[in-house]
Design a protein around this nucleic acid. Structure first.
Length: 324
DNA sequence: AAAGGGGTCAACCGCCCGACA
DNA sequence: GTGTCGGGCGGTTGACCCCTT
């Protein structure tokens, strides 16, 4: 069963394509269309195997290929889709016009995976890394027993997921050499994290407009991993909403522009967590480019974070101040 | 300026799968 | 059921580029 490799026959060229070869392939496909890749090279006068021709065409020569750096919106779409689809690169590519599966795979392996790891997120599961959770647990117990908490920063704030969040958050702020003392100091800065949402005001969920993702809403069992608002460009790091369900807690996050001053967590069970599809805020749906769409520098990309992270419907009767 | 090392990415390999004759 | 074909996937390779020393 199966087919022979097809590219190992003597006389067939391998390696980088020349401009002449590219032109031959383009000319042939423009005249005859693609398909029948096994016989195409011979007909086109190419000393290549059919598979090589197909890959060259689909990954490079196709007229609708989009070259250049991935935008931040594309980053977010890839992460979102990967959280649901896994390594289905072709499926992901189908939702990113002009991008190929190979390109996305390479980009994932060379950029996004590293970024997620830096943020303390497992790029496979999209969940916080267990090793960081362990670290955060150590930090939690250490800080709980310390005297740094005279101002009521107690109780539910000290749970592993919060520290995981803080760790990831600070990591995304390029604070790679973070010391425990610095972390404690930063956490102490958190005051009234619900200030943006006074009283019973329910955090605004951004629009759900990426039709391609509708299918995910049809499966409420799928994880609601990323809720991202791209209305604010100056933000600090991604957060997976898988963090919402850690150690039995449901957590809501708001990351504003004031460093770590607007991190919030619930220690309450929130009964009406809105299902996945109805909440998903899809960055690609926005017509407003992040950072004016002009800056794709790696540093900015790596430090980018969507800022609207509150993704669930807070019940009116819930006294969120109580958890602060 | 040159060497070395790491990162990036196009291209390839081997295997697999589904469709089709 | 079998063979062929197109296509997908994960992993790898090697050339090239850039940065650091």
């Amino acid at each position: 069963m199966g087919k022979p490799p097809g590219c190992d026959k003597n006389g067939l060229k391998k390696g980088p394509w020349t401009a002449e070869e590219d032109q031959k392939l383009i000319d042939y496909i423009q005249k005859h269309g693609h398909g029948r890749w096994r016989t195409l090279p011979k007909n086109a006068g190419l000393k290549r195997c059919g598979k090589s021709c197909r890959l060259r065409w689909t990954n490079y020569l196709r007229p609708d290929i989009k070259r250049g750096k991935f935008s931040i919106e594309e980053d977010e779409v890839i992460i979102q889709l990967h959280s649901v689809l896994g390594n289905k690169w072709s499926a992901i590519a189908a939702r990113l016009p002009g991008r190929t599966d190979n390109e996305i795979k390479n980009y994932w392996n060379t950029h996004i995976k590293k970024k997620l790891l830096r943020m303390g997120i497992d790029p496979v599961t999209h969940a916080p890394r267990l090793d960081l959770l362990e670290l955060s647990s150590l930090l939690s117990s250490s800080l709980c027993n310390s005297s740094l908490n005279p101002a009521g920063f107690v109780g539910s704030m000290f749970n592993p997921s919060f520290f995981s969040l803080a760790t990831a958050f600070l990591s995304s702020n390029q604070t790679k050499n973070l010391e425990i003392n610095n972390l404690a100091g930063n956490i102490q800065q958190i005051q009234n994290p619900y200030e943006p949402y006074q009283g019973n005001q329910v955090p605004v969920i951004t629009q759900v407009s990426q039709a391609d993702l509708n299918q995910f809403s049809a499966n409420p069992g799928l994880p609601n991993l990323w809720q991202i608002d791209n209305n604010v460009s100056d933000s600090k790091g991604f957060l997976p909403t898988t963090m919402q369900n850690i150690n039995g807690y449901n957590h809501g996050f708001y990351l504003g522009d004031q460093n770590l001053q607007q991190v919030c967590t619930f220690s309450e069970k929130i009964p009406n967590l809105v299902p996945f599809g109805s909440l998903l805020s899809t960055p690609s749906s926005s017509s407003t480019p992040l950072n004016n769409g002009s800056s794709t520098e790696d540093i900015e990309r790596d430090s980018y974070c969507s800022s609207n992270m509150l993704i669930f419907d807070v019940p009116k009767g819930l006294n969120v101040n109580g958890c602060m």
